[in-house]
């Protein structure tokens, strides 16, 4: 059973503000789901290699080459900034 304070800790890690009520609700719901996935412990996995890529692709590489995009595409990227100054993405001070 996940406690309310554990749920608050998870929400901190996930950078989501949650209310006390939400924490309460999530604690019940998440505990239910965690009980359900307990089933996995029935499967013997001693010595089994975990899956990395399902169809077995490995180290797909390409030349590290810069491709210039046209101005329209650049403008379209910039237009999606929530806050901007000129052509810069405006961000709050980090420190």
């Amino acid at each position: 059973m996940l406690s309310k304070s554990e749920v608050q800790k998870i929400a901190q890690l996930a950078r989501i503000e949650i209310t006390d009520e939400e924490a309460e609700k999530y604690s019940t719901e998440l505990s239910g789901i965690l009980d359900f996935v307990e089933k996995l412990n029935e499967v013997e996995t001693e010595g089994v290699e975990p899956i990395a890529h399902i169809s077995g692709a490995k180290n797909v590489i390409r030349e590290d080459k810069v491709v210039e995009y046209d101005d329209e595409t650049k403008d379209n990227v910039i237009n999606n900034f929530p806050e901007k100054k000129d052509r810069f993405d405006k961000v709050k001070a980090v420190f």
């Binding site: 950078r15 999530y26 998440l30």
Partner: peptide, 23 residues
Amino acid sequence: IYFKTRAKYLGKEVKRRIALGTY
């Protein structure tokens, strides 16, 4: 901005899955 944006604009099921995955 992180905490309040995600709280306000993400839905219930999305938050539930983020929480489960984060845990």
